[in-house]
């Protein structure tokens, strides 16, 4: 999917969290958005995913404006999100959590479920198979029957990723997926992201940890105080003095 953000702005209490941000992510690209704390990364993420509405500006998925659509409609358009906090669903198994991810791509409703119509049974079978594939992929297959909230934090993050993949997304948004992970988990995540990128999935990766993204991303957008201050390949961005200044503070 081609993602275009045009002049997006969002203020909280009179302070701009994101101000006039534009960026274009080409289909199949892995784009990283980096910046110091409070740069507006998470706000930008929410403006694309639909968790927040923009005050001004556009968001386009494959050319279609989506900035007025609620999050669940955007999910149906092919965007999947992995939140920074491990938002797993309690009181449900790991497998059920991942099955929720397929909601956007399936249809059967209350009536079909209540009466166990054939359409519902078919949907259920397909959802279960798809969810198991995603669990295998994220290394959670052995945990399928466990209660989701019993998983260690690192696994809960993998679970969120499995849930996002179960929607068969065309654009994957990841908000600081590596934060709080141990080195081995971080390596596994990097491998998984590389694999998804190789399959042609468009990925937007918001990350505080610059080292983690520099080796993964095709291009990097740098935010500071809600504005784009640099954009380019990892090597180009690293060489820009304003990026160094933003991270180290004005000298």
């Amino acid at each position: 999917m081609r993602l275009v953000v045009e002049g997006a702005s969002r203020a909280f209490g009179g302070v701009w969290a994101v101000r006039d941000v534009s960026l274009t992510v080409e289909p199949g690209e892995l784009r990283a958005v980096i910046g110091p704390n409070g740069a507006g990364k998470s706000t930008l993420f929410a403006l694309i995913g639909g968790q927040l509405a923009a005050d001004h500006g556009r968001v386009r998925f494959d050319g279609d404006p989506v900035e007025r659509l609620p999050a669940h409609r955007r999910a149906r358009r092919g965007v999947s999100v992995v939140f920074q906090a491990a938002r797993v669903f309690h009181g449900m198994t790991v497998l059920e959590n991942v099955m929720v991810g397929a909601h956007a791509t399936t249809r059967s409703g209350f009536l079909a479920a209540a009466l166990r119509l054939p359409a519902h049974r078919r949907d259920e079978r397909e959802i279960r198979t798809a969810a198991m594939v995603c669990l295998e992929r994220t290394g959670l297959a052995d945990w399928a029957g466990r209660a989701a909230e019993e998983l260690p934090l690192g696994r809960q993050r993998s679970l969120q990723l499995a849930r996002a993949l179960c929607a068969r997304p065309r654009l994957l948004l990841l908000d600081e997926p590596a934060s709080g992970l141990r080195a081995a988990e971080r390596e596994r995540l990097a491998g998984l992201i590389t694999g998804l990128r190789a399959e042609g999935l468009t990925i937007l990766l918001v990350e505080h940890d610059v080292a983690f993204v520099m080796r993964l991303a095709d291009r990097v957008t740098v935010l500071d105080l809600g504005r784009v201050i640099a954009e380019g390949t990892p090597a180009e961005v690293r060489a820009r003095p304003e990026v160094v200044a933003a991270y180290l503070g004005p000298s």
Partner: peptide
């Protein structure tokens, strides 16, 4: 499918909505 969606929304409306 709708039942799981409801149970999911009981924990996190935001994450459920993000799943469609």
């Amino acid at each position: 499918r709708p039942g799981r969606a409801l149970r999911a929304a009981a924990t996190s409306e935001i994450a459920a909505a993000a799943s469609g």
